[in-house]
Design a binder for these strands. Structure first.
Ligand SMILES: [Mn+2]
Ligand SMILES: [Mn+2]
Ligand SMILES: [Zn+2]
Ligand SMILES: [Zn+2]
Lengths: 142, 142
DNA sequence: CTCCTTTTTGATAATAATTATTATCTAGTG
DNA sequence: CACTAGATAATAATTATTATCAAAAAGGAG
């Protein structure tokens, strides 16, 4: 498990300079919640770090994603979410509110790619299970 | 296979009025390409139907998606794509250009959902295999 | 510690995709 | 033909994100 004490080392090992903004953003992702949006990160950090800017949050999480500190999740038509869990895993997603729950596969799916796929360099895959979470089912009852 | 001659019937069966705009949009999706974006649909139809509006394209494809005539695909950080293939299937996607190729599973993945998932009403799932297409590999060679 | 170079930050503007609003128009009904 | 629910087109508004760039800060070298 990642610990907030490791933050400066995590940043250095990723080849990034250590700044208060980066420590705050990485700290938020480690401590609070997986799968936060850029805006959620900004709103939370802004309380104790009022001078931080929205563009810094975007720059920083994009940087983090590039060096592999987080993984950007971009499905649904809503905002990107950022996942501090960088192990290969998959997501159960609520169609209404976008809540994500991690899960792991017991057995990978067996897929036969069609001829048109030849020459494609495959890097990884992601399974998205879609449904409605209990909270959203409750709130949409007639 | 869907045929352009069936378009009025397809619209009526879906409970939608038959209008030239709807015929044009559905016709484009059937004839030309699977997985077009709203803008691609608009740009193509606009040539022969100059009075059509961008908002009509959006309204119409959203309508189509609601009644099950097309399926909206929303991964990647780019624009939504609309799939005239509404059978359950999955996608190989190019990380660079967003090109999509359909594929079908031989065997569904076996997943064990965690306790947090209890109460979730599962509707369907989608496997997204990510990579780089031959064209994009070629164009990014040093 | 001080100076210097490089990187990062933050304010703002710009862009892209999409949704909302609304006046006008039209298909279907009788 | 006349009426009305529904559809269209023009436009404004919104949301998420990226670009620009001067000022501030980080990390080394001396
Ligand atoms: Mn996750
Ligand atoms: Mn498809
Ligand atoms: Zn929900
Ligand atoms: Zn490509």
């Amino acid at each position: 498990m990642l610990n907030t004490a490791d933050i400066p080392k995590l940043l250095k090992d990723a080849g990034l300079r250590v700044t208060p903004q980066r420590e705050a953003i990485l700290g938020f992702l480690i401590e609070h919640t997986k799968h936060a949006t850029a805006d959620e990160i900004y709103q939370s950090i802004h309380k104790t770090f009022p001078s931080i800017s929205v563009s810094t949050v975007y720059n920083t999480i994009k940087h983090f994603a590039q060096v592999g500190l987080v993984k950007e999740i971009t499905f649904g038509d809503n905002a990107s979410r950022f996942d501090i869990n960088v192990q290969p895993h998959h997501h159960l997603v609520c169609k209404k509110c976008g809540t994500l729950i991690d899960f792991y596969l017991e057995k990978p799916p067996s897929f036969a790619l069609p001829p048109e796929a030849s020459g494609f360099e495959i890097e990884d895959f992601h399974v998205e299970v879609k449904g409605i979470c209990p909270a959203c089912r409750e709130s949409s009852r007639g």
